[in-house]
Simulated assay, not measured.
Amino acid sequence: MKYLLVMALVLVVFWIWRNNRDTERRDAAPVRPPAPQKPGTAITEIVACEVCGVHLPKTEALIGSKGIYCSEAHRRQARD
């Protein structure tokens, strides 16, 4: 029984030591600022196709009378 208590105490001390060490590492890690964007790069808006739900850049999407589509076939399908 005595050995079990000693083993439990050692495990608790080890757990506390390791937890503190991980916390110190996270606190000491340098905080990096977000990477700057290159001049002239714009953020692209992403839209979803009304028929299949595929996400694609708005610049590549086809705009129809009832919404935004990923292909000519889906634009025609929505018209029918």
Rank of each mutant, 00 (worst) to 15 (best):
residue 2 K to H: 15
residue 4 L to M: 06
residue 4 L to C: 03
residue 5 L to I: 07
residue 6 V to L: 15
residue 7 M to L: 14
residue 12 V to Q: 03
residue 13 V to H: 02
residue 13 V to G: 07
residue 13 V to D: 02
residue 14 F to T: 15
residue 14 F to H: 06
residue 15 W to S: 13
residue 16 I to A: 05
residue 17 W to M: 13
residue 17 W to G: 14
residue 17 W to A: 14
residue 18 R to H: 12
residue 18 R to D: 12
residue 18 R to M: 11
residue 20 N to F: 14
residue 22 D to G: 09
residue 22 D to E: 12
residue 22 D to H: 07
residue 23 T to D: 15
residue 25 R to H: 10
residue 26 R to W: 08
residue 27 D to Q: 14
residue 27 D to C: 10
residue 29 A to D: 03
residue 31 V to K: 14
residue 33 P to K: 06
residue 34 P to A: 09
residue 36 P to Q: 02
residue 36 P to I: 03
residue 37 Q to R: 09
residue 39 P to Y: 09
residue 40 G to F: 09
residue 41 T to Q: 15
residue 42 A to T: 11
residue 44 T to D: 11
residue 45 E to L: 12
residue 45 E to K: 12
residue 47 V to R: 09
residue 47 V to F: 06
residue 47 V to Y: 02
residue 47 V to K: 09
residue 49 C to K: 06
residue 50 E to G: 09
residue 51 V to S: 14
residue 53 G to V: 08
residue 53 G to W: 03
residue 54 V to S: 11
residue 54 V to A: 14
residue 54 V to F: 12
residue 56 L to T: 14
residue 59 T to N: 07
residue 59 T to L: 06
residue 62 L to W: 05
residue 63 I to V: 15
residue 66 K to H: 09
residue 66 K to E: 02
residue 69 Y to S: 10
residue 71 S to Q: 13
residue 71 S to L: 10
residue 72 E to Q: 14
residue 74 H to E: 03
residue 75 R to Y: 01
residue 75 R to D: 00
residue 76 R to W: 02
residue 79 R to M: 05
residue 79 R to N: 07
residue 80 D to T: 10
